[in-house]
Design a protein around this nucleic acid. Sequence first.
DNA 1: GTCCGGTCTGACGTTACGTCAGGGTCAAGC
DNA 2: GCTTGACCCTGACGTAACGTCAGACCGGAC
Lengths: 252, 252
Amino acid sequence: MTQEPKELFKAQEFARLAGVTVRALHHYDKLGLLKPKQRSRSGYRLYSPRDFGRLEQIVVLKYLGMPLKQIRRLLEPDANLSQALQRQQAVLLEKRRQLDRAVAAIQGAQYSFAGRGEPDWNLLKYIVQEMEMQNNTDWTKKYYSAEAQAKVETRKPLWSPELQERVSREWATLFADVESALGEDPASPKAQELAARWKKLLGEFTGGDPQIQQGLNAMYADQSNWPPATQKAHAIKPEIIDFITKAMRAAR
Amino acid sequence: MTQEPKELFKAQEFARLAGVTVRALHHYDKLGLLKPKQRSRSGYRLYSPRDFGRLEQIVVLKYLGMPLKQIRRLLEPDANLSQALQRQQAVLLEKRRQLDRAVAAIQGAQYSFAGRGEPDWNLLKYIVQEMEMQNNTDWTKKYYSAEAQAKVETRKPLWSPELQERVSREWATLFADVESALGEDPASPKAQELAARWKKLLGEFTGGDPQIQQGLNAMYADQSNWPPATQKAHAIKPEIIDFITKAMRAAR
DNA sequence: GTCCGGTCTGACGTTACGTCAGGGTCAAGC
DNA sequence: GCTTGACCCTGACGTAACGTCAGACCGGAC
């Protein structure tokens, strides 16, 4: 008899030890990611402590959000873990940026009003479009130097609760101010000042200076195209966004 | 003739207008999420401006990370948008917390050494396990008051580049210090001080005070169970973690 | 012998489409 | 009238990481 390892575990026990499910073990087995050391005569999976070490690695890498395919490659003897971790981190950071944008959009729409009543569909749509544009305008990142990139990364403020409340209040007052200035000339200094405040505030949660999409005001102005659910959730008048858009265009 | 809307769009044009793919339109159609106003005799989908409004909503809600099923419910006339947004935000924030933990784990393992050489598997595993435990120990959140929760939320520091560098340096010196103290009694004041530093540093990126898992040192100590890939990526000696674990246990 | 808990192997369900495959449609040019 | 190229249609399979049955076998206890 060759010297057998001290212990072998059946599926359930083994799974509990590592904090995964039996089904996951089946899955990893089928993928060739983790095959049990042996099978019993009746076909039961029997895992060794060495298998446990491998499973632990899988669990850790999975925690870092890596896909199983990549994990399999990383568990090969000649894999470059350091590089993989670095890349994975970049992936995670990008995902987080996207999450931040979504969170900020909701924040903006939800708490922009002092009353904290209904979120505003128009504003939500507007913010999301701004962010998508900013996203697409990220050729800056691709074409500018690494240093510029680093600066961009650093500048990101990441909504603190304090910032959030402050911005929330500022939105509320800004809306009120714009509403009372609706009759003004969009090119007037007063309108320009409002537009500047708007732009600045938008920058607070888009994380960069926003580019204003030109053709949207028509969409916002014509409510007839809105499906019913949208029409209910309206606290901000389209005129407000319309006015601001015009004012910004006037500033060229 | 009844008054027809001014325009009808075929799939591609319509898709381009809204920034989605034709295939997505097919998908939404099949799901009943967005059915074109009409079909041509030959079966072509013909979308109206009103459909465009609906599609815009879909795109916005999708940007916020909502699943299509929920979006469909939200587009019904009696939906509660505000509530849905609030819930969605909670979902996003939770996801972001998870991302943060993963990022921090990589940071910790990757940059813990001054040399920035290889990441350390042991430390990585350790950190991840800490975080999982902290995750499971989140009954605090469930059972404590909302105010306590808010404080927890607020406290989160969110790795700034500066913090990251500082922590990175502190890890490096801490490892060196522990290594030179390996012969000491884990209960000695010196060891205790090291353990305290360790605990504090761990807290920096786990975002809370860590709970030390008792049964791990055996695992860390016995390298024979580690699969080959792991053994390469080792800069930190298991003795270091072993020592710290003992010191912390000695502190009871 | 039987019962209960554990294990096995398929196989379908999930999410939001991407990607063919096979086959009509439409307007333009010859 | 015919071809051509751009577009449209409807399946149907693939993706990631398992969850969730379903049907059948195994192993120890009573």
